[in-house]
Design a protein around this nucleic acid. Sequence first.
DNA 1: GGAATAGTGTCTTTAAGACACTATCAA
DNA 2: TTGATAGTGTCTTAAAGACACTATTCC
Lengths: 247, 247
Amino acid sequence: MPDDAWSPPSVLLTVDLVILTLRDGRLHILLVERGEAPFQGMSALPGGFLNHGGEEILDAAHRELSEETALASSWVHLEELGVYGESGRDPRGRVVSVAHLAIAPGLPDPVAGTDAFDAAWIPANAVLSGEVELAFDHRRIARDGIEHARTKLEFSSLATAFCGTEFTIAELQHVYEAVWGTSLDTRNFYRKVQAAKGFIIPAGTDRRRTGGRPARLYRAGPKTILFPPLIRPTMSATEENTRGEEE
Amino acid sequence: MPDDAWSPPSVLLTVDLVILTLRDGRLHILLVERGEAPFQGMSALPGGFLNHGGEEILDAAHRELSEETALASSWVHLEELGVYGESGRDPRGRVVSVAHLAIAPGLPDPVAGTDAFDAAWIPANAVLSGEVELAFDHRRIARDGIEHARTKLEFSSLATAFCGTEFTIAELQHVYEAVWGTSLDTRNFYRKVQAAKGFIIPAGTDRRRTGGRPARLYRAGPKTILFPPLIRPTMSATEENTRGEEE
DNA sequence: GGAATAGTGTCTTTAAGACACTATCAA
DNA sequence: TTGATAGTGTCTTAAAGACACTATTCC
């Protein structure tokens, strides 16, 4: 299709990161304050341009992740979320962003990235509700990322990525409740996580706290796909999912 | 992060299309023969660079689709599949492709796009098996697209996009069988498509063929999400989905 | 014993899977 | 009546949802 002396338009590529974690039982997302125009002073997702020298997109995401969270990359689940490339989304020109989703276990209070940015964990709800405004189309990216995480929790063992190496079933339940924003029946939850063979495996040891029966500890099992899946209670049947208009 | 006199690297953006249809009961994918280097003469997915002037990515995908299939765009389901941007994937330089999945009802034999390309429907199996070689990383894109379609058939009403406006339940079953590559029990299939309320609605009329009882005709219903879903028989439980190595 | 947390068992309903025959039409 | 295609009904098993009590520890 290219003609003789025709050259295709080029675009700038960024990666943006939806980094989720649990803090005091609630789902939080990592936001940075933009230090420069455009949207200077506004909250935004961590991210940035690809490096020169043919950096891979996924490598760039890992680089941004460790720059923002100072977190050992191997600890963190990272996956592609989608492309955001509408022509009006960045006032600097045609900037196409590849969004990624990262799931981290709870981190120490100060985020303390190696970058100078002011970074903070913000409750996911504050972003979803629009209470916190984000630069660019980052609110939509954040929404998509959170929705993606919710769905992945149903069919994959992703939930364990929110926990440390060892965790109790109650902790795992709190992960599901926090991410889904629902509350679950303890008995059914125990039944289901244990029915999904390969999801969690007993660590042998117990964890004792002040008062109360000690909890058995588990580790993530070898399976990444849950069967049977843990379907979230909402939206199962009654919800709306009607097509727009017929032709 | 950009320094004072720093400018980010730019990339070329393409769209690639995995266009699937059913021909004589088998899943086919549209391939074109490349008219120029690189990979001249080799089969490839339809696609091309974005137009100048800030063309939207999805618009570019629609444009390529109609250039290749001469198909009314409103008939066709089109959605983003993912980004393919490994630095070595295109010898011309850093070319990042946004892959899309398109599902079309059976088309008349000659593809007859408006472009000069030699385009043809190839059985999906020939691509999956490697019997037909594709340029670039297009085999992986095709594999991902087919797998995506298979999964979407389980949870969405996508299957109707392979049919005309009116179709019989037997035809719908053939869609599932062709895309999944399995054979299904007729009775269970009838039960399930009818249990998923809003999936298909009776068109009132019958279709008569030569010999045999006339079949009731249906149209796509208003629901896009299937509940209960139609889970494919394979992979339900017994399959492997083990994590690579711990840590 | 009391407070705190961890863990379990049963019943009902829904949906999946397996399985073979009846219905309607044209020739 | 035969050939061809369309459509259906039952039983068993798997899993979801609802629901309340027992177990273990620390004080």
